[in-house]
Design a protein around this nucleic acid. Structure first.
Lengths: 213, 213
DNA sequence: ACTATTCTGTTAAAAATGTGTCAAATCGAA
DNA sequence: TTCGATTTGACACATTTTTAACAGAATAGT
């Protein structure tokens, strides 16, 4: 496994395959061909076969792919068989929403702590976990073996906080702040820039309107 | 303007340019060259020049780009000079978080209404706007000239609701449900699949760990 | 057991995307 | 005003990504 670097394009598509296979599994479908999956997902069968083959031959000629097996294998590739400890920095609306969201989703992500600078929020319980003051965050990461920090704080603070987190060895940051973080080699960052997303939507609306005319 | 189809890749980068230019504008920087911007954003200067040129020659040889002007032009391309009326479907944690978030961001997006099926939430005020029952949504869209619906509801309901919304002529859906929507031609959909994003992060963590070894 | 059909993994071609280079335009200092 | 330095826009080239095609393997029906 993992001979050559897998492209971001392929990785980006894996969660979507995983989602569709999960659905098929729930519907107790036993096997599926790249062609059928292609029809469901509106991508070419060729792409599906080639994507999956980056990780090994999961299918069988004349049969297709076993849903259960493929689902589990993609899960492994995505690292969902391992548990990840996760803290949320920023107990505002979005932070709280994600905390709640985490408890529904349990693909190996364990919500361990939540932090804020606002004294009014400290001590408040969210999904059974108390909001802690920001000062405690570095100690907490070290003691609780935290892998992922979720950043739901204003951009003005995000850069400084990210630096603090990487200094104590956080492995990954799920960044909801509207700013690009500059982290040391080896720290993974996944950005969720909601305003960027909304702007793309705005562009597409306008583009269609003017095209139509 | 808009001679040939602009690729998704280019559109995807525009909001990021917009963000950096906004920052430069705030710092009262007057002009910038593709080279300087390239250093800031960690992309090639060539790509910046080519991307911007899809929309017309905003720069000037020997001078570079005027920050204020370029910022405004990209804003126009993204449709941020027009106002968009937006409603939120699903007044759960995420829906409320986005409602609050919208009020901070005012790039022409006007938060007009929020809806839920849960009777316990109806009537509750969020940012000064009352949660309305779902039955009223179609009438509301027609009467208030709503462009965008934000979907923060469980995937089990999302498909049916999307169908209802498109039937009354919604132009765009900002979809936070974990499901792909199948909408009629001309309705724009921008997905924010948070779980997909988290899985990519998980993959990257694992990939780095095993590489390091 | 035979044969037509199904379907993968792989290779090659095509399409899309990104990068380097350079002429021409403009700037700014002397 | 002149001239070297700067910087764009254009274009050609390189790379990446996607799609098509097909040989070979397995299936399923008879």
């Amino acid at each position: 496994m993992a001979e050559r670097e897998i492209s971001q394009a392929v990785i980006g598509r894996l969660p979507r395959y995983f989602r569709y296979l999960g659905e098929l599994k729930d519907r107790e479908v036993e096997r599926i061909s790249s062609r059928e999956l292609s029809d469901m997902m509106h991508v070419t069968a060729s792409q599906i076969r080639q994507d999956l083959n980056h990780f090994g031959g999961f299918g069988q000629q004349g049969y297709g792919y076993n849903v259960e097996y493929l689902y589990r294998e993609i899960g492994k590739i995505l690292g969902l068989d391992k548990t990840h400890h996760l803290i949320i920095i920023g107990a505002g609306n979005l932070g709280q929403a994600l905390a709640n969201y985490m408890n529904f989703q349990r693909q190996g992500f364990i919500f361990t702590g939540i932090f804020d600078v606002n004294p009014a929020l400290i001590g408040k319980k969210i999904r059974g976990i108390e909001v802690r003051p920001m000062e405690e965050v570095t100690g907490f990461i070290r003691q609780n073996n935290v892998d992922i920090a979720v950043l739901t704080i204003p951009k003005s603070e995000a850069v400084a906080v990210a630096e603090r987190l990487t200094a104590v060895g956080i492995k990954a940051i799920w960044n909801f702040a509207h700013v690009d973080l500059d982290v040391p080699e080896g720290v993974q960052v996944e950005n969720v820039h909601l305003s960027d997303s909304l702007m793309r939507l705005s562009y597409m609306i306008d583009r269609y309107e003017s095209q139509k005319k």
